[in-house]
Design a protein around this nucleic acid. Sequence first.
DNA 1: GTGAAAGCGCTAACAG
DNA 2: CTGTTAGCGCTTTCAC
Lengths: 354, 354
Amino acid sequence: MARRRQAVTIRHVAADVGVSLQTVSRVINNEPNVRPELKERVQEAIARLGYVPSIAAQRMSGSRSYLILALNDRDRTIADWRARQGTDWVDQMLLGGMLKCAEHGYRMIVELVDTHSDHVERELLAAIAALQPDGIILTPPHSDNPLIVRCLAEQKIPFARIGSKEDDVGMPISMDDEGSAATATRYLAARGHRRIGFIAGAAEYNLSGWRVDGWQTAMAEAGLSTQGLLHPGDFTYASGERAARALLTMDSPPTAIIASNDQMALATLEVARALGLNVPEDLSVISFDNTPLMQFTQPQLTAIDQPIAATASKAVELIIAAQKGEGPIDELTVIPATLVERGSVADAKQTVSA
Amino acid sequence: MARRRQAVTIRHVAADVGVSLQTVSRVINNEPNVRPELKERVQEAIARLGYVPSIAAQRMSGSRSYLILALNDRDRTIADWRARQGTDWVDQMLLGGMLKCAEHGYRMIVELVDTHSDHVERELLAAIAALQPDGIILTPPHSDNPLIVRCLAEQKIPFARIGSKEDDVGMPISMDDEGSAATATRYLAARGHRRIGFIAGAAEYNLSGWRVDGWQTAMAEAGLSTQGLLHPGDFTYASGERAARALLTMDSPPTAIIASNDQMALATLEVARALGLNVPEDLSVISFDNTPLMQFTQPQLTAIDQPIAATASKAVELIIAAQKGEGPIDELTVIPATLVERGSVADAKQTVSA
DNA sequence: GTGAAAGCGCTAACAG
DNA sequence: CTGTTAGCGCTTTCAC
């Protein structure tokens, strides 16, 4: 393979304009101390010559790499891709994150890391050493993985923690899990539901707990009991099936169920069907995440939409700001989630008791 | 921001073992001229110190960048992401391409380029100058965009052309569009269908034509006429709707329709419903692509599955091989596609005529 | 087989 | 305000 060299370098530009490399460098990086007139001439030459700085060289000389790593959990991500169930988490991250990166001349690289591996740190350090990214975006469940978080803190790389509320290190961004769970609960209560079941997500994800909290808060607000109405799950279809079956076969079963993700909501739909319950007439269902499938179920599912793109976009902004020396923003950023109304919720039937 | 430097460099390793930088470099790159015993000691030190070469530095000194660019059409990709219809093209590319990259120590960067822009070349050149990738994967419709192809050929960067059959420059890889269209057609013919309609894809994509070719070939084989059974489309739902309506309202309409992508198949389903036709009893439908949604339509759609992951994986292999100086493989690589049987195809009804 | 020297394209630090 | 100098970490020559 022929050794490929930069076609046009800072040198060419400098020679063309008749200034030093430094001046060109200053113009590129929008630094002060260049006369407007000169700056303009340099910019003209850059455009005319089609000069684009080499990221590798910029990184080498100790400046930015213009690279942001988006760290996702290896097993879960690959499983989602293989399953082809329409889970578009990565797409939404790219939509929000990558486009925001592009606005600032950055690139986003998706990196998969096994959160359970005993050498997470080594994997991470290797990626950092190889790429020298300017920032890292952690997604659940990495966002609260102490090994990863500590490792990054030591490296002094700005990092955003999506789905985390820990503000000890890094920049936490939550999608308002608690608030949106409460919203869903209130929405059901307003329709007359008194017994609202809740299927929790994997305990490994902190957001699972917040969703439960939101439900409990709203239930308490409405003066409703949660006794026996909470069932654990782990985000898988199978766990949703077990939970839904347990909830729907109990004495005085719930008339509405909130599932902590789409797969478990899908399972709930199926269990209801098997039990001869019509959705939404006999059972209202609300799911979390709102992946594309939710528009194609029978009936279409009312769901809490996770603002993944907006969150990823915000994460990139925070990183770039931190990188500019504006210091990491360690207060929690909350991106609001919304309830998408579809066809899986109906008013509760009139109770027989007076 | 503190100027971040490599924690452990080739220098540390060299000093640790007591050899020159050169020797360490040779070991890293698996080059000859290092005694096995020495090589082992160096490798041990690398592992112990946790040394990982800096990609930026490697690129700087004229070697590989270990970066592969996956070029997708900006508008279409963003539209798909925004629509949240479950189109998982990018995911499947990552699944196949990124994992294959990882096997070889490469990274894949997704890059969006507007194929219609009059400065495609400038955009492309800018990405190349900035990233200095070792190879580029072109996806439709970029794969046959003469501006892009010529530009890359001049840059002497190995590039794969997914969905192309042009072997003039670059490495073409097709997903057997013609063959799989023929497969679908034969599958329907074997079930007694004599009038099989075909909705073509956007003319801008060469593969649209190949799919038509495959259909025509198989129809001819079976001694069936294609007269009036071909209708243009452009991959959008709206165009599928128009085409399906035209086909189904003609005199002696088709009893089966093959749509060149999922959106148009979805539209066909809807038009059939509007026309009071039951699928599959009155009309059989086969779609192309097999995005996740196809499992959730009513009925589930029988579809030709596009082996995107396998294709992307192959593209990465070709690039890495070419990069190693094994020279570009310019013969067409064909990745076989398969027909996924679901519920949208039934035997043709007995014709009334004896 | 192994090592020393030079330089990739850029920026930080310092002079002027 | 502008230019000069000295590397960043690595690989390529080219000696030995």
